[in-house]
Design a protein around this nucleic acid. Sequence first.
DNA 1: AAGGTAACCGGAACCGGTTCCGGTTGCAAG
DNA 2: CTTGCAACCGGAACCGGTTCCGGTTACCTT
Lengths: 194, 194
Amino acid sequence: MTGIEGGAARPSRPLRADAQRNEDRLLEAAADAFAREGAGASVKDIARAAGVGVGTLYRRFPSKELLIEAIYRQEVQRLCEAAEHLTATQSPVDALRTWMERFIDFMAAKQGMADALAVVLTDESEKVHTRSLLADAIAHLLGAAEGQSVARPGVEAQDVLMALGGISLMAASEERRDLATRLIDLLLHGVVRS
Amino acid sequence: MTGIEGGAARPSRPLRADAQRNEDRLLEAAADAFAREGAGASVKDIARAAGVGVGTLYRRFPSKELLIEAIYRQEVQRLCEAAEHLTATQSPVDALRTWMERFIDFMAAKQGMADALAVVLTDESEKVHTRSLLADAIAHLLGAAEGQSVARPGVEAQDVLMALGGISLMAASEERRDLATRLIDLLLHGVVRS
DNA sequence: AAGGTAACCGGAACCGGTTCCGGTTGCAAG
DNA sequence: CTTGCAACCGGAACCGGTTCCGGTTACCTT
């Protein structure tokens, strides 16, 4: 899939050939499984589909959530990159709202994604790139219009991200889109300058 | 423990004598176990301590979360009742903030409580009394000062409760009290009239 | 080419929540 | 007191995530 580096950041020497092959197979099998049955797919099935034991899977991805994170990293990155375009075509507040709604829709689309995200956001180790990706996107939206921040002073992107994570956990599912909308509205009112 | 009605609401005829006895034992064993090892206590251990099989436990409490809910119902009720006193002794906004902080502290104190709460808040069935208890308390805080609401129009107690639930999931632990404080602040700014 | 070893492999075992079902029993009706 | 049966019981079995460890192997060294 990626060809280079799939699991956690690993600055050390390159993987052994067999290990790399297994990682590639795992990423492929996992992407396939998640696409087909959502994040509910079992790690045992994924390992079997990849032709390896669960032990191998767990050496590369220390938890199911981190495997999910690895699989969706690209899509999250795309979502973050979209923030730039939004600030260019909408008012700062509208851009922020639109992005948040996309974020929630993304979480809702992948069943179980929200839990994985919570783990990633909560995890102490700074190894997880996804978090800073998201935080940067939010920081960009907050600070839109060159130095003219839309946010009240003291509002940090990190915190807004955490709040969004909370909303995802409570409301990221097809049948609660309206609740999500209202919670985003609440959050927005808390974020922007009055 | 309660003597009458412990699990879900049951308007039908009273429980059979043995069933009632088992329910009482379960509540006692669960309260003990949760107090001793937090919500991480295993249902199997609880069932064994109560001298019944897990099947019996599950007939009365359809999931671990609902058992937890039953155990802490009283404490939640006390928390909700405290709202009244707060509105009498503090400014509306301070009362709201103080109550929210207590709420989060409560969630943080009982390890795993937040997940149980999320299930309760998310659950469709209107059977769960705890939710309306909390929603009413929040409604009271929002509408403090007799009809003079502190909240922006359109802000519903239900939604604020959900937001609090999200914050609990992300930040209800001893080592994240500061994050929780900031998120509560964010929420408050979103709730009150500017 | 042979050897040594750190890295890697697979899957059995474990753990916790949840479901299922054959056997049992409280209790009301006769 | 007997009897019928709905309600109830217990725990084996299942399922999914995670850990552990004895055996294997890629690859560097000599």
